[in-house]
Design a protein around this nucleic acid. Structure first.
Lengths: 367, 367
DNA sequence: TGTTAAGCTGAATCTAGGT
DNA sequence: CACCTAGATTCAGCTTAAC
């Protein structure tokens, strides 16, 4: 057991090397405004995974992500959450990010340790890695838990700032952001990624704008290559990083030196304007706008097809998407099924595109 | 403790009134294909909530949603999950839906009871209720956990059907669907909503199309007003509902009577190649579709191999199956020889897979 | 220099069936 | 159970090469 300094002065704007449980134990209690934590996920990966083109997936197989059992992982989780809670100010809060491998254990531990969950926030990745074997759903999101130190605490929530970030509409619990790649992704001397799980700046930007004020102290107990520190510094917050790995610290130190507060251009992240959202034909079936077994008629009245439960059509032995079946029946190279296929409604024949428009207008009002 | 009948016959297509833990305890083990559960969320709401216009929000404040503590809720959760797991077939699976109030406890319990989590799936609501006080994020999603009975189980996943539902792109772990309202929302005699947390049909449609096959047995231990049963019946699955509340059962019974199954042909979903009958490469030689001594060319044009009478290939001193030789020549860990090796036909280079297709279509027409 | 095509990669608990 | 082999399987975005 390492001897721990008692009630030392809180360090600021530096990276501390070592185990986060021990280092937090040496910090004064009730001194930190926000903790953002990206702990090991305990992925429990087995063998290799290859893409259909036979290239190998560069998996997270680092030593720091390996735990002997759920019990071991739980003990670790509860230990660092306990110290984190001790050093939080009474009105402080915590964010923890994870995947289904670990997030349920983290969430239960948060509740058991006395934190009060305010929201779970879903990071919906716009460009996740697909499921190569077709055995599960694309793992397209990660989950963040936002919790105050205790029930009734007066946590920071910059409602208006977040609303502005979201084009004037109240920010929701699901955030669409791309994964960290391109120029933002830190590389080592060999040109390989410096850290296997670097988080995007945009994610931290939204967290810190929403949950802290300038001058607040932000602590990241699993600092890695320092995304939390980078955004905190840009936004004029004080930051503290704790990290075990000397290699990551070296990259992070270099990174932090180059960060300037309020560097506008660095804050520009993925403000892509929304194109008309894609609506799969299958949604019309799922939502009951079309029944499986129902018949669609072609716009020229010459062809008919039957809807199946999986959102495909069947006609004259042809089965496939609305576009494929339309093209096949017309002997055409392609066909826009949305305008080709029609239903009877109010005595009129209307293209199924009107149903798609209905869904799109619902999505618009939802933000 | 209620006396429980042992290894009774599994009831089908009916609603059983009572406590789901006791009733499941009376069911034969390994008899159910899929469980969909929407357990109490343990919302812990304090006091009334009012909208900005001072109208009162009709919150979930029913007795069944109240638990004294996390310990009580955990005990309840583990008890019903244990029974649920017992009655699941070895290759069965479970879906549980919840919010941040309870889903972390449910997820940890699932893992502790021996279930194997396959995905967490986020239901992203297109029209959620806003956060009226502006103190948190709009609670715009709920989380579902999909888990098999145990690690390594061969669970059902209709990959191609779900891909069809999503316009030909692999289905992701985030699903955008509207909440249940309008004509779909069941009303009681007073015109009020019959159940506070009725789930949309579209959600269950996607779950059941993806995770069951026609004829499977689907159990919902918290049946409520029967959305799971309704979709199961429409999709030609058998269903079992368990519900404590007589009022909900009455609504559900009435609802189930009016449900009609879609016709058979509409229930056919796109099959994956995995389900197609296996055709040994040797059959192509036996049937004279390929001659011993004939040369095959690789799809990239870089390699060639000669067919032998026993259905193996030879190239550059390598001899073996179409897959083994392909993998060896490419230096790859594996190779699908059916799509890798090609023949010349009508002046074009086509993969030998088309020959396999010919055999398979003959098998189809032969019955 | 501009445009197009090909290549690479990302927190992944990623097979099925026979002997 | 272990072991072996057939053979099924990917989306978006950025980078680099080719034209």
């Amino acid at each position: 057991m390492t001897k721990v300094k008692e009630a030392a002065v809180l360090p600021r704007n530096e990276i501390l090397q070592g185990d986060c449980i021990e280092i937090m134990a040496g910090m004064p209690e009730a001194s930190v405004d926000l903790i953002f934590a990206d702990p090991p996920y305990n992925l429990q990966l087995r063998g290799d995974l290859h893409r259909p083109d036979n290239s190998r997936v560069d998996a997270v197989d680092d030593e720091w992500d390996r735990f002997a059992s759920f019990e071991t992982y739980d003990a670790f989780t509860r230990a660092w959450l306990k110290q984190a809670r001790r050093i939080l100010k009474p009105n402080g809060a915590i964010w923890v990010i994870g995947s289904y491998h670990n997030i349920f254990r983290v969430g239960a531990a948060l509740q058991d340790e006395g934190y009060w969950i305010l929201n779970d926030v879903v990071w919906r990745k716009s460009n996740p890695m697909p499921n190569f074997r077709g055995k599960r759903f694309t793992n397209a999101h990660e989950t963040m838990i936002w919790a105050s130190k205790s029930e009734g605490a007066r946590y920071t929530f910059n409602y208006e700032a977040l609303k502005s970030l979201n084009d004037g509409i109240q920010m929701r619990s699901d955030w669409v952001l791309p994964i960290c790649n391109g120029g933002e992704r830190l590389k080592d001397a060999n040109g390989d990624k410096a850290h296997p799980t670097q988080k995007p700046l945009g994610l931290l930007h939204r967290v810190l704008v929403g949950a802290t004020n300038p001058g607040d102290v932000v602590l990241d107990p699993f600092f890695g290559t320092g995304t939390t520190g980078a955004v905190a510094k840009m936004l004029g917050r004080d930051w503290i990083g704790i990290e075990r790995d000397a290699g990551y610290i070296e990259v992070a130190e270099r990174r932090m030196k180059d960060i300037r507060a309020y560097d506008r251009s660095a804050l520009q992240v993925s403000q892509s304007k929304r194109a008309a959202p894609r609506v799969p034909f299958g949604q019309l079936v799922e939502r009951g706008m079309l029944r499986p077994g129902e018949t669609l008629v072609s716009v020229n009245g010459k062809a008919a097809a039957k809807v199946r439960a999986d959102g495909t059509l069947v006609a004259d032995g042809v089965n496939g998407s609305i576009h494929q079946v339309g093209a096949a029946l017309e002997g055409a190279p392609s066909c826009n099924g949305w305008t080709y296929w029609c239903i009877r409604r109010d005595g009129k024949t209307v293209p199924i595109d009107v149903l798609r428009q209905q869904i799109r207008s619902e999505m618009d009002t939802a933000g």
